[in-house]
Design a protein around this nucleic acid. Sequence first.
DNA 1: CTGCGACCTGGAGCGCGCTCCAGGTCAAGC
DNA 2: GCTTGACCTGGAGCGCGCTCCAGGTCGCAG
Lengths: 125, 125
Amino acid sequence: MSSYSPAETAEKSGFSIDTLRYYEKIGLLSDIARNASGRRVFSDDDLAWLGLLRCLRETGMPIAEMLRYSELARSRGDTVQERLELLQDHDRRVEERIAMLREQQKHIKWKISLYRDTVRGAASA
Amino acid sequence: MSSYSPAETAEKSGFSIDTLRYYEKIGLLSDIARNASGRRVFSDDDLAWLGLLRCLRETGMPIAEMLRYSELARSRGDTVQERLELLQDHDRRVEERIAMLREQQKHIKWKISLYRDTVRGAASA
DNA sequence: CTGCGACCTGGAGCGCGCTCCAGGTCAAGC
DNA sequence: GCTTGACCTGGAGCGCGCTCCAGGTCGCAG
């Protein structure tokens, strides 16, 4: 098996059918095959691509940048270097985001410990 | 010094003046003092509260939940237990988010390494 | 006493990323 | 032959979190 209906693709990719259509419309997905009656038929390659899109989306890449990436990916010329740089930049931002979350988490944990002290204090009083 | 103009507060808190007004309007900020001519005057306590709001916001807490938290915080009754649970839940979500980012980052790094191989291959060819 | 700039208000508008809808087509099952 | 249901299209609508705007009020500097 190597071709999938919209419903199967939605299930496997984690995007809704509406989102798949939207992604095709704006150009994140191109050359999606159609059967005789005009319905979309997704391939394993499409699924792999959707997997990457999902990963970029979930790590916070804006759609505009994913669009830039997919234009590079489908371009005829050699864009490997540019794609590499784009992903490296993104990777750096993910790293920063993780560091920021860890930092802010300290503040939250500190606040939690204050509340815990209060609860304990009230219980022992 | 322990009172701050809107502009100072914006600068220190990292929220824009418009956002400060918006937060007061929706109830995230309450009892902000005013001077004789009706202008806002922020205190050190307000700034500390804004610091917490900022931290919750940046770690992805939706405004609706921050609102719930601030209602608990300003309530007359003993809501320490509830606030504790809310923050603990949030802390757990932050943890999960970090784990997810790390996981997805593997995918990105794998893709990066593919591109690097391609670049190297092309250079040596 | 004039001008300026920081502030005020209520409310409209915006950017993002979908999500939903009306109206239609087609293939399969009864 | 009819119904059903998965799919199609173009386009409107939505939820979130601000952000901007018009029109007005102060208080101080020149």
